[in-house]
Nucleic acid binder design. Structure first.
Length: 271
DNA sequence: AGGCGTTCCTGGGGGC
DNA sequence: TGCCCCCAGGAACGCC
């Protein structure tokens, strides 16, 4: 499941290949993949050269002079460049460039969507700060959390609260900070919040440096994420905690499969 | 405000 | 071996 590090890896991979390309058209292979391409914007889509590619939250942003295209991979989305049609039956959309090359969007479970906006305002309004951005300071994080009474895992997964985290990196960050995922957010001691702040950043940075955790099949070069070798709790049910040796438990928290060491991670209840 | 259920999808795992 | 059932999971939305 692509989270911030996986999306960043995809951006790093495709950016040098498509900046400067001119978009001829987007072919929706599966009819729901283009989420909000209203006809007016579509017809005025004349400034068609890609000027930048970057990540915001879990979106891949392809920027044109007058508009942006945002791609969300959701669970199983993949992007890769190719010259000709691929044989994959899971392609849901194809970006055709004037150079005759194409960017393929492949998505087995079909949750991924492509959005068209005039600018970033709608996405920015619905998403919290970037955990690796300069504006995301410890003081800001403390201020965001100190009035929140949700359980900490649900809060960290909420893209409106903080951008980019998903199930894997939330579990990893909470384990590293010795916080039980079912803790009430504003009951977690300040020292632990400081640790969490540091651990969210370092976990994401380490994962980016390993090209993410999810196995991403780029088809062309077959690169896959290597952070899976570094996971401490996620996916390690019944295995020994690498810190204390106690058996890792799999729970359900915030409706998600959740991995936790009940010996290392303390649950902070409502005060 | 926050928790919970539902929806979208399909491959794959569990049960028998 | 084979078949059917059911579920994971990101995010939006509605309901209480």
């Amino acid at each position: 499941m692509p989270e911030l590090p996986e999306v960043q890896t995809v951006v790093n991979y495709i950016k040098p290949m498509i900046v400067g390309e001119r978009l001829k058209r987007i072919m929706p292979v599966w009819n729901k993949v283009l989420y909000n391409f209203d006809e007016d914007i579509r017809r005025s889509f004349k400034k068609n050269q890609i000027i930048d590619v970057y990540r915001r939250a879990k979106f891949i942003i392809i920027a044109f002079e007058k508009h942006i295209i945002a791609i969300h991979l959701r669970m199983t989305g993949k992007l890769y460049m190719a010259d000709k049609k691929t044989s994959s039956k899971h392609v849901t959309a194809v970006f055709e460039f004037e150079s005759k090359r194409s960017l393929f969007f492949e998505d087995v479970r079909k949750f991924g969507r492509i959005y068209l906006y005039k600018d970033m305002s709608i996405i920015d309004a619905r998403h919290g700060p970037e955990p690796l951005g300069e504006n995301f300071t410890l003081e800001l994080f403390k201020g965001m959390i100190n009035h929140r009474k949700r359980n900490i895992k649900a809060l960290l997964l909420d893209q409106n609260f903080l951008s980019g985290l998903g199930n894997i990196y939330v579990d990893e960050s909470l384990w590293k900070s010795s916080i039980h995922p079912n803790s009430i957010a504003n009951s977690v001691p300040q020292k632990k919040i400081e640790a969490l702040f540091i651990n969210i950043k370092s976990t994401l940075e380490d994962a980016i440096s390993q090209n993410g955790t999810t196995i991403i099949d780029f088809s062309v070069n077959g690169e896959s994420g290597k952070y899976s070798n570094y996971l401490s709790v996620y996916g390690r049910a019944k295995k020994a905690c690498v810190e204390c040796g106690y058996k890792i438990k799999k729970l359900k928290v915030a409706g998600r499969g959740t991995y936790v060491c009940l010996k290392c991670q303390k649950k902070y209840k409502r005060r």
